[in-house]
Design a protein around this nucleic acid. Sequence first.
DNA 1: GGGAAACTTGCACAGCTGTGCAAACCTGTC
DNA 2: GACAGGTTTGCACAGCTGTGCAAGTTTCCC
Lengths: 345, 345
Amino acid sequence: MTDVATGKQRQRSFVSAQQVAALAGVSRSAVSRTFTDGASVSESTRARVMEAAEALGYHVNHLARGLIHDQSNIVSLVVTDINTPYQARMIDALTSRLQRAEKVAMVINTSGQAESVEKALRQTLQYRADATIVLSGQPAGSLIQTCLNNGQHVIMVNRDDPVPGPDTIIVTNRTAAREAFAQLQAAGCRKIAVVASEVGTASVVTREQAFVAAATEAGVAVQVMRYGPTAYASGAEIARRLLAGADRPDGAFCVTDLLACGFMDTARNSFGLSIPEDLCVIGFDDIEQAGWSSFNLTTFRQPIEQIAERIVGLLQGPPPPSTRREPIRFQAELVWRNSVRGKPV
Amino acid sequence: MTDVATGKQRQRSFVSAQQVAALAGVSRSAVSRTFTDGASVSESTRARVMEAAEALGYHVNHLARGLIHDQSNIVSLVVTDINTPYQARMIDALTSRLQRAEKVAMVINTSGQAESVEKALRQTLQYRADATIVLSGQPAGSLIQTCLNNGQHVIMVNRDDPVPGPDTIIVTNRTAAREAFAQLQAAGCRKIAVVASEVGTASVVTREQAFVAAATEAGVAVQVMRYGPTAYASGAEIARRLLAGADRPDGAFCVTDLLACGFMDTARNSFGLSIPEDLCVIGFDDIEQAGWSSFNLTTFRQPIEQIAERIVGLLQGPPPPSTRREPIRFQAELVWRNSVRGKPV
DNA sequence: GGGAAACTTGCACAGCTGTGCAAACCTGTC
DNA sequence: GACAGGTTTGCACAGCTGTGCAAGTTTCCC
């Protein structure tokens, strides 16, 4: 393969504007202007440049472009448990919208050991990402601060660190959890349990606490059981422990749909219970599986599409000042299916 | 905030090596060498540099670094249907391993309209990604060719375009599908159906065809039904159509676990069938839900972790020559659960 | 035809880094 | 103290782009 412009033997590698310019017989500036919106190029040279670019397979080097503007158009997504239905949907929604906004998503997986999280987050800075979207509970506040200091736009989802600077998006976990209690009580549940995990993710903890608070206010005692990670297997294990006892609960609030799935499956398959007749269950998140006919889980829907829309919207403007801002709230909507007796109140 | 080095008012923005050098009282080269493996710096200046870097919050600019070396350390993942359990697991496995290998993953979501796919793939090139990993059936071969021409390392997973150049990874769909037939036959199924989608993804098509071929060889007629996308709802719809007839099938090979879940749920909940007594089901992929006790689905496990390991391994070396290479094969292992009568043969 | 106005184009610099090269420095030996 | 050999350091250039500025070109109007 020979380089058309220089005549030298060309390694398979990226084409530069220089080479396009040489082939088109114009200056490099003309090439640059052809690919810059709003720059002044005559129609004829633009055409020549485009033809040459096409022929050589030229693509503007965004690394160099990012060097000049203070904008890389890279947005980094800091995520744990990507293989979880909720997170996967979030990533799907975000990446497709980011693309539509001419940005590109860099995924930082914080599932590994904490030390690697720090290294990964550093990558965000090293690639001069314009923004960091934190979907994970992991990275410490101090690391977030570093991002802010470097002028990054930081958006945190479902975390409630009281740091000034980042935009914060939260779903009304508290309200929803209280509503969950009201529904279970209306369904006539006498003995209510809260199914939670041992992982102290902000939203999960909030849901548990708010539910317990609502129960306490109503003068009802509830049994809280936490176990393992926030996953199907944990819900199953909790069911095994909770339902084996003499006075088993007849209502359960699972802080996550995944926990609910494990809980329901075990309740039915290992204990022969019918849902909702013997046991009412409410979950949270409205993951796809909640709608499957074997679960038919009553749950709270997180408006993921709207959240993603809003996040990408926030990214359009210039990064905001580093003052404390009110969190942006989204309502979690009750999705009534068939895992609770009766009708919603 | 005032810049320690220059004394000027500093916009919140990224720190450059120049500023670190000024603060540390050394040349910029010294800073560069401090952050370059194997470069020659005395212990004392390294310490001074590190201190200054720490104070200012310096991070090497990978955009500029990538400009010099022909290496950005960016790997782009081209993916459809991220919110699907199989893809989500793949992304999880890949991103965490890429991070460990000091690379970073850029996710290109090709779920949108085809036109956006092309634009998205162009991003891969514009950011000078070292490699492109294609997990999606979407992008046309010609686009892939462009990546190759630019010297990118392209790795395709579960596609069988006969293009020379890319590394190809395939799971032994054919073998597994034949084994599926053998198992259903051994379980005594008389009337066997294939549950598939209308989306012509390579692996899905291969599984269907190989199964049918095996049946034909054995002189058994099977009924193939394709419907909609490769999702739960499609499996459910196919069950509704297939099981309503007079002579309903008593065995089904679902080309995907998701289809299988929908199929099973509908078979049980809408038609009152018992699995495996009335109906044997085999799936493919071994997604998490296949192991849930309400499904207990016999299926074929794709060795995702090993595949990811291998992919990242391929990325370590220099990009290979653009000759046709033999695809790298992985065995899909039968996972026997309880959706087929009897024992595996 | 002439001149003003608008447009186009090339030059040269900036943005941030890595690195070859030569100069400067240090260490140790005679 | 001189010198050889090794280590460290700074200079200057390269890599690819965007853009202000001035020069060149076209357009248009009188």
